[in-house]
């Protein structure tokens, strides 16, 4: 099954059309759990980006060697390997960031989005396309996390990237994990409404 999309289209697909958080609604647990600030979202996003790209590449490279009956264990093994590598690199070179998000990095093993992308895309497509798809998905996840983080940090602690911009704390509620669901839900509605509006303008029936 050849892919007829260009590399940029694949990246854009991951960020907009099939955004892991807002459109596919996958891996919501970390999205809600850790996206209390922009920086947290960014760091977990980077980790996911690396794991997604490397796993996609690995699986795409060895796709003809994988026995179809054990493909899921193989995916899990690949993801686990890369997560462990990222975990060790972060612990060694970014100890302060690691202290904050160490437990979430280990959780990446169970992220639905990565396994889903390997199953849907990387095991059928060539290496190049898989790389761009992994990059797009990782970026989509990162941007999603950062957007949620932005809203929550601004509304929850009145700051952006740790700098106090409002001077007061509007709603402490947004820092709490449950508020993550509200933000994600509102953002989903926002993205969907944009899409509907866009399609109507173009003359499609939604």
């Amino acid at each position: 099954m050849a892919n007829d999309k260009s590399s940029m289209q694949l990246v854009a697909n991951g960020i907009l059309k099939e955004n892991p958080i807002f459109r596919l609604a996958l891996s919501m647990c970390p999205a809600v759990g850790i996206s209390t600030t922009v920086m947290n979202g960014f760091m977990l996003g980077i980790a996911v980006l690396f794991v997604q790209v490397f796993s996609s590449l690995t699986i795409s490279m060895v796709k003809n060697l994988i026995h179809p009956r054990i493909r899921i264990p193989t995916y899990t093994l690949t993801i686990a390997t890369w997560v462990t590598v990222i975990d060790m690199v972060l612990a060694a070179y970014l100890p302060e960031a690691y202290a904050k998000m160490g437990i979430f990095v280990k959780l990446i093993v169970a992220f639905a989005i990565i396994t889903m992308r390997l199953e849907m895309f990387a095991c059928k497509e060539p290496v190049g396309a898989s790389f761009w798809d992994g990059l797009g998905m990782g970026l989509g996840f990162m941007i999603g996390m950062m957007t949620i983080g932005l809203v929550r940090e601004l509304l929850g602690s009145g700051a952006i990237l740790g700098y106090d911009v409002l001077g007061f704390k509007p709603l402490l509620f947004f820092i709490l994990p449950s508020a993550g669901f509200f933000v994600v839900g509102l953002m989903m509605a926002f993205f969907n409404s944009i899409e509907i509006y866009y399609k109507r303008k173009k003359g499609f029936k939604s």
């Binding site: 026995h67 054990i70 193989t74 093994l77 390997t81 590598v85």
Partner: peptide, 21 residues
């Protein structure tokens, strides 16, 4: 095949462990 994959994975992890220790 599973054993082989595990061995490769162990090798990669071990390599990075040494590099970051």
């Amino acid at each position: 095949r599973l054993t082989l994959s595990c061995l490769i994975a162990a090798f990669v992890i071990g390599l990075f462990f040494v590099l970051t220790s």
